[in-house]
Write a protein that binds this DNA or RNA. Structure first.
Length: 601
DNA sequence: CCCGTTATAAACAAAA
DNA sequence: GTTTTGTTTATAACGG
């Protein structure tokens, strides 16, 4: 059975599967968002208990992830050793051992998945996370996506004010509420904080309810996710707190609900999402390894699209973006050939977690951020391994492919190869994107076909290419807004990001499994995101102080090199978010019934 | 609301 | 006859 399903990649054509797995539905929550328009999510009401629970889960999820990574690493090593020879002849014993280990691993993965899902769910409920169903993924997207820009801020504001009122009443502290939610932990409160779940949900908050909040802390009196080893673990903080009490004090005073905390919280969400993405990737690898060991036998080829087969399908764009939640792939995605793939096993499903795939739809171009070729190159590593939909337009990618070639010219097939080589995302749904590539080549004047001895090659007319790009970024206002605020705290955030990674022991990735491009990419992605946003709104980069941390990479600032230069402004790429992505899905196809069109030209 | 850009789908035609 | 390569047309989603 494992045939991997890979075969079906090609199907794409029609909307076949639609519903596909139901799993996603949970999360997607029905389109949660989309957005802006109605920001109201279905407000579910969640109790504080839920929140606390969710938070705990999040933590657990992280821990589990950590463990998984470690194990995975070990496993990889193991399998790596054997794989070479594996072939048919391999001693059954070895295989069994491996299999056993993998099984255990799978179980863990499952567990983790569940945790993640729950976590996501809770976040969604809280309104902190928006999920978009189909999002494609971008490196950032995932990140961004998760955040809700304006709404979040507003909420906070509301919360704040509300809470003020409450304070009068007596207890609760708002500040923590959100924070907690975001970050995860529950707030300690002896004092009484409460978390109010609702606040987030819609715009209205209902503030608290004392009862439940206590759960978490009470249960774990001194264990606070934000406190450890006598130090405040708030991202970027590290303030020393002698005891838990002082820590609480510190938390309330230094990390109250304000723009900074909001921004940091956002970043933390991104971090979590990113980690989840990574985890998904590794899971995918594991799956491929397993497939290879068990089924294998196919040919060695796997090269280009090895992993995909298995999970790929599911993944589609979203991997990253979707990250955590995204899983939900939109139900819509009819197009995506999802196929049943995911068969049951958890492992596979894992991938599905994030994924989704709706192929179509733009991943939100909405937040387009100008990206230059340099940017593309920068995140190369990332896209090579992550099945994230690159935030670049086809035209930009095609151009990049051609320009990277020595002769500055490529045949169609070479362009295809470049796509698959450089982007994991394009290892699947070939029919779809290849068609898009051809379409772009023909459509845009900037691509010139040159007859050659042995066929034809495509070249780029830079002048033409630059001509068309008026569009510039345009970011989602809300996002931008948020970003702005984040921007101010950029530095600390970076540090936070790093710290977080380290803290979660993700170092694994960096060194071992992932090769670390991840961090860097993430950073740059964020940077770009910020940049784009900033650039758009106001160009005050002043604040962007040169950060300090190693993560500087994240810093916006220079990246934008010549804002004016059209080149850079590539277009829409949405690094960010994608948040939206509405559910549009497919109704498109229905039009067949009657051709009505005239609105367009 | 109109326009321009991009993404998808698809129908076709011409070459391989 | 099938596949690949190119062109085109139609839609839809967005953002300005």
């Amino acid at each position: 059975m494992m045939q991997e399903s890979g075969t079906e990649t090609k199907s794409n054509g029609s909307a076949i599967q639609n519903g596909s797995g139901g799993s996603n539905h949970l999360l997607e929550c029905g389109g949660l968002r989309e957005g802006r328009s109605n920001g109201e999510t279905p407000a579910v009401d969640i109790g504080a208990a839920d929140l606390a629970h969710a938070q705990q889960q999040q933590q657990q999820a992280l821990q589990v992830a950590r463990q998984l990574l470690l194990q995975q690493q070990q496993q990889q090593q193991v399998s790596g050793l054997k794989s070479p020879k594996r072939n048919d002849k391999q001693p059954a014993l070895q295989q069994q051992q491996v299999a056993t280990q993998q099984l255990a691993f799978q179980q863990q993965l499952l567990q983790m998945q569940q945790l993640q899902q729950q976590h996501l769910l809770s976040l969604q409920r809280q309104g902190l996370l928006t999920i978009q169903p189909g999002q494609p993924a971008l490196p950032l997207q995932p990140l961004a996506q998760g955040m809700i820009p304006t709404e979040l801020q507003q909420l906070w504001k509301e919360v704040t004010s509300a809470h003020t009122a409450e304070e009068t009443t007596g207890n609760n502290h708002s500040s923590l509420d959100l924070t907690t939610t975001c970050v995860s932990s529950s707030a300690p409160s002896k004092t009484s904080l409460i978390m109010n779940p609702h606040a987030s949900t819609n715009g209205q908050l209902s503030v608290h309810t004392p009862k439940r909040e206590s759960l978490s802390h009470e249960e774990h009196p001194h264990s606070h996710p934000l406190y450890g080893h006598g130090v405040c673990k708030w991202p970027g903080c590290e303030a020393v707190c002698e005891d838990f009490q002082s820590f609480l004090k510190h938390l309330n005073s230094e990390h109250a609900l304000d723009d900074r905390s909001t921004a940091q919280c956002r970043v933390q969400m991104q971090v979590v999402q990113q980690l989840e993405l990574q985890l998904a990737k590794d899971k995918e690898r594991l799956q491929a390894m397993m497939t290879h060991l068990h089924v294998k036998s196919t040919e060695p080829k796997a090269a280009p699209q090895p992993l995909n087969l298995v999970s790929s399908v599911t993944l589609s764009k979203s991997a990253s973006e979707a990250s955590p939640q995204s899983l939900p792939h939109t139900p819509t995605t009819p197009t995506a050939p999802l196929t049943p793939v995911t068969q049951g096993p958890s492992v596979i499903t894992t991938t599905s977690m994030h994924t989704v795939g709706p192929i179509r739809r733009r991943y939100s171009d909405k937040y387009n951020v100008p990206i230059s070729s340099a940017d593309i190159a920068q995140n190369q590593e990332f896209y090579k391994n992550a099945e994230v939909r690159p935030p670049f337009t086809y035209a930009s990618l095609i151009r990049q492919a051609i320009l990277e070639s020595p002769e500055k010219q490529l045949t169609l097939n070479e362009i295809y190869n470049w796509f698959t080589r450089m982007f994991a995302y394009f290892r699947r749904n070939a029919a779809t994107w290849k068609n898009a590539v051809r379409h772009n080549l023909s459509l845009h004047k900037c691509f010139v076909r040159v007859e050659n001895v042995k066929g034809a090659v495509w070249t780029v007319d830079e002048v033409e290419f630059q001509k068309r790009r008026p569009q510039k970024i345009s970011g989602n206002p809300s996002l931008i807004k948020n970003m702005q605020s984040s921007h101010a705290y950029c530095t600390p955030l970076n540090a936070a990001l790093q710290a977080s990674m380290a803290e979660n022991s993700i170092p694994l990735y960096t060194t071992a499994s992932m090769g670390n491009p991840t961090l860097g990419n993430l950073a740059s992605a964020i940077r770009e995101e910020l940049n784009g946003a900033m650039e758009h709104t106001n160009s005050n980069e002043s604040d962007s102080s040169p950060g300090r941390s190693p993560m500087q990479a994240v810093h916006p600032v220079h990246v934008k090199e010549e804002p004016l230069d059209p080149e850079e402004a590539e277009g829409p790429l949405s690094l960010v978010t994608t948040a939206n992505h509405s559910p549009d899905f497919d109704h498109d196809r229905d039009y067949e019934d009657e051709p009505v069109n005239e609105d367009m030209e």
